[in-house]
Amino acid sequence: MKLLRDSQLTLLWTARIDYSKGSQVEPHTHSDYDQLLVVLSGHGKVTFGQQECDMQEGHAYLFMKGISHSFRFTGQSVTLDFKFRLADPEMADYFSSIQPFSLCESIHLAELKQWYKMSLLQARKPGRFHPMSIEAGFKGTLVSLLASNGSIQSGPYTELGFKESNDPIVHYMKMHFAEKITLGMLSKHFGFNPNYLIKRFFDKTGMTPIQYLQEIRLEKAKEYLEFTDLPISEVAEMVGWTQAYFSKILKKRTGLPPSQYRDSLLNAIGQDIILEENFSNVWRIVP
Score class of each variant (00 low, 15 high):
Leu230Met: 09
Pro231Gln: 02
Glu234Ser: 09
Val235Gly: 03
Val235Met: 11
Val235Leu: 09
Val235Trp: 08
Glu237Leu: 09
Glu237Asn: 15
Glu237Cys: 05
Met238Ser: 15
Met238Asn: 10
Met238Lys: 10
Met238Leu: 06
Val239Asn: 00
Gly240Lys: 00
Trp241Asp: 06
Trp241Ser: 02
Thr242Glu: 10
Thr242Trp: 12
Thr242Tyr: 15
Thr242Leu: 02
Gln243Pro: 02
Gln243Glu: 14
Gln243Val: 02
Ala244Val: 13
Ala244Arg: 11
Ala244Ile: 08
Ala244Trp: 07
Ala244Ser: 14
Ala244Pro: 01
Tyr245Gln: 10
Tyr245Leu: 07
Phe246Trp: 14
Phe246Ala: 00
Phe246Tyr: 04
Ser247Val: 05
Ser247Lys: 14
Lys248Cys: 09
Lys248Leu: 11
Lys248Ile: 15
Lys248Glu: 15
Ile249Val: 15
Ile249Met: 12
Ile249Trp: 13
Leu250Met: 09
Lys251Ser: 09
Lys251Gln: 06
Lys251Gly: 11
Lys251Thr: 09
Lys252Gln: 14
Lys252Cys: 04
Arg253Cys: 09
Thr254Arg: 15
Thr254Gly: 15
Thr254Pro: 14
Gly255Pro: 04
Gly255Leu: 04
Leu256Ser: 08
Leu256Asn: 08
Leu256Lys: 12
Pro257Trp: 14
Pro257Tyr: 11
Pro258Asn: 02
Pro258Val: 00
Pro258Ala: 04
Pro258Gly: 12
Pro258Ser: 04
Ser259Tyr: 03
Ser259Ile: 02
Gln260Arg: 13
Gln260Ala: 10
Gln260Lys: 05
Tyr261Ile: 02
Arg262Cys: 10
Asp263Lys: 13
Asp263Gly: 14
Asp263Arg: 13
Asp263His: 15
Asp263Thr: 09
Asp263Asn: 14
Leu265Glu: 14
Leu265Gly: 08
Asn267Asp: 07
Asn267Leu: 02
Ala268Asn: 08
Ala268Arg: 07
Ile269Trp: 01
Ile269Met: 02
Ile269Tyr: 02
Gly270Leu: 01
Gly270Glu: 04
Gly270Tyr: 01
Gln271Ser: 11
Gln271Gly: 02
Gln271Pro: 00
Gln271Asp: 03
Asp272Tyr: 01
Asp272Val: 01
Asp272Arg: 00
Ile273Glu: 02
Ile273Gln: 04
Ile274His: 07
Ile274Cys: 02
Leu275Ile: 00
Leu275Thr: 05
